[in-house]
Amino acid sequence: MTPADLSLTVLHAVRRAVDEGALRVGVPARVKVERPRPGGTGDYASSVALSLARPSGLDARAVAAILKERLHDSPGVRSVDITGPGFLNFTLEDGGQDQVVREILAAGALYGHSSLLSGQRIRLRATDEPRARLLTETVLALLRSQGADARLDPAGERIPVLPAPYEPHLLGTDAARWALLRPAAHDRALSGAPLLVQHERNPLFRVRYAHARSRALLRNGAQLGISAAYAEPVDAPDLLTLLGDHPDVLASAARHRAPDRVARHLEGLADAFLAYQHTVLPLGDEKPSAAHRSRLALAEAAGTVLAGGLSLLGISAPDQI
């Protein structure tokens, strides 16, 4: 179960409680789930009960208890606990992270795309300022990835942005786009020259290099007769967590008109993958096994998510660097 799946599961529990008359509130458009804060338990947590307490006229822990009753038998959820003033804490079934890998390999570059904003009609205003135009174009792609009917309209919403030149003629398309999209819209654009250096200090290089390494591992695995197949759990919690968070990152970036959230997420994912890559293929006299096939499948999944995220930013993901 991914964070996006869990968010929908909790939202369905709220709707059920409202339909049954246990809660008298408006059903929110979405429910946020995140990593538990200090004092929390399990894999994920939600503060939805706290936000519904005042409009329902109930104590937050009472709201949490109502929702817990409707969540305890949800597929993929092992247990639900209430902590603090009314946080819901979720422990997922074993194999939840395994399912993330399988979902990525099944969905390919569309992993993280959803119908979360389906039915929403969003119009954005294009301007002649280069950074604003690029940001608007990228936000439209993010909104469409979440199912929104998103288009340009002279009377539409304008996204505030600190102006900066777009210089593909000097930097190439990839570095020019990263320079404008990686910082938050209200921050200064990045200096272009460091983005052309093929070194680990360059975050754009790390992200694209991580993708290239994932593809190289697949090629090397094929030469050893190892195909990617997720058959058993892999001990790579940081990488698996970031992969599972990807759908929520895309949804958040779309809602907040913030492509920088995708870029930051890709940096973290690339760093986690580059730390993991050395464990994938057999070393020395080690024989290929189901463990290597599973590790290779995780490497393929990481490369798939890196490529998909870069594509939404309009940046290429080369198979070789």
Score class of each variant (00 low, 15 high):
residue 112 G to H: 05
residue 93 E to V: 06
residue 168 P to L: 03
residue 189 A to L: 06
residue 174 D to M: 00
residue 142 L to K: 01
residue 108 G to T: 09
residue 151 R to M: 05
residue 130 P to H: 05
residue 135 L to M: 06
residue 123 R to D: 05
residue 169 H to D: 14
residue 167 E to C: 12
residue 108 G to V: 10
residue 166 Y to T: 08
residue 131 R to E: 02
residue 88 L to P: 12
residue 132 A to H: 06
residue 116 L to A: 15
residue 187 D to R: 15
residue 159 I to C: 06
residue 99 Q to D: 14
residue 169 H to V: 13
residue 141 A to F: 08
residue 113 H to K: 14
residue 122 I to D: 05
residue 175 A to T: 00
residue 124 L to I: 09
residue 143 L to N: 02
residue 196 L to P: 01
residue 170 L to E: 14
residue 132 A to Y: 07
residue 117 L to W: 04
residue 123 R to S: 12
residue 165 P to N: 07
residue 182 R to M: 09
residue 144 R to E: 01
residue 147 G to S: 07
residue 189 A to T: 07
residue 177 R to F: 10
residue 140 L to Q: 01
residue 159 I to W: 00
residue 192 G to Y: 10
residue 167 E to Q: 14
residue 97 Q to T: 12
residue 88 L to Q: 11
residue 160 P to H: 08
residue 124 L to G: 00
residue 160 P to C: 13
residue 172 G to Q: 07
residue 191 S to V: 04
residue 196 L to Y: 05
residue 91 T to E: 12
residue 179 A to K: 13
residue 106 A to F: 03
residue 146 Q to D: 09
residue 170 L to Q: 13
residue 146 Q to C: 09
residue 90 F to D: 03
residue 140 L to S: 02
residue 191 S to T: 10
residue 105 L to S: 03
residue 103 E to R: 09
residue 169 H to F: 14
residue 190 L to D: 05
residue 120 Q to S: 12
residue 117 L to G: 07
residue 192 G to D: 02
residue 193 A to C: 04
residue 163 P to E: 11
residue 101 V to S: 02
residue 157 E to C: 00
residue 125 R to N: 10
residue 172 G to T: 04
residue 128 D to C: 02
residue 99 Q to V: 01
residue 156 G to R: 10
residue 90 F to M: 00
residue 116 L to C: 11
residue 147 G to L: 05
residue 108 G to N: 13
residue 93 E to L: 10
residue 127 T to A: 10
residue 113 H to R: 15
residue 168 P to W: 01
residue 156 G to Q: 11
residue 195 L to R: 03
residue 140 L to A: 03
residue 155 A to G: 09
residue 123 R to Y: 00
residue 104 I to W: 00
residue 180 L to G: 06
residue 193 A to R: 15
residue 103 E to D: 14
residue 115 S to I: 15
residue 129 E to V: 13
residue 125 R to S: 09
residue 155 A to F: 05
residue 109 A to Y: 01
residue 124 L to E: 04
residue 125 R to A: 14
residue 122 I to G: 03
residue 134 L to N: 04
residue 109 A to K: 06
residue 154 P to N: 04
residue 124 L to R: 01
residue 151 R to Y: 07
residue 112 G to N: 02
residue 143 L to C: 05
residue 161 V to R: 04
residue 170 L to K: 15
residue 124 L to H: 00
residue 104 I to H: 06
residue 137 E to L: 11
residue 138 T to S: 06
residue 137 E to D: 11
residue 178 W to I: 01
residue 142 L to G: 10
residue 154 P to H: 06
residue 125 R to G: 04
residue 99 Q to H: 08
residue 113 H to F: 04
residue 137 E to A: 13
residue 166 Y to A: 06
residue 95 G to Q: 12
residue 121 R to H: 12
residue 105 L to A: 09
residue 125 R to M: 15
residue 104 I to R: 03
residue 174 D to G: 05
residue 99 Q to G: 13
residue 134 L to Q: 06
residue 183 P to H: 11
residue 170 L to A: 14
residue 152 L to D: 00
residue 133 R to C: 12
residue 158 R to Q: 15
residue 182 R to G: 00
residue 196 L to V: 06
residue 128 D to Q: 11
residue 133 R to T: 10
residue 159 I to L: 15
residue 186 H to Q: 14
residue 147 G to K: 03
residue 191 S to A: 15
residue 177 R to E: 02
residue 136 T to F: 08
residue 116 L to Q: 13
residue 188 R to G: 15
residue 160 P to W: 03
residue 137 E to Q: 10
residue 115 S to T: 15
residue 146 Q to G: 02
residue 192 G to I: 02
residue 146 Q to H: 02
residue 145 S to W: 01
residue 173 T to S: 08
residue 135 L to H: 05
residue 187 D to L: 15
residue 159 I to R: 00
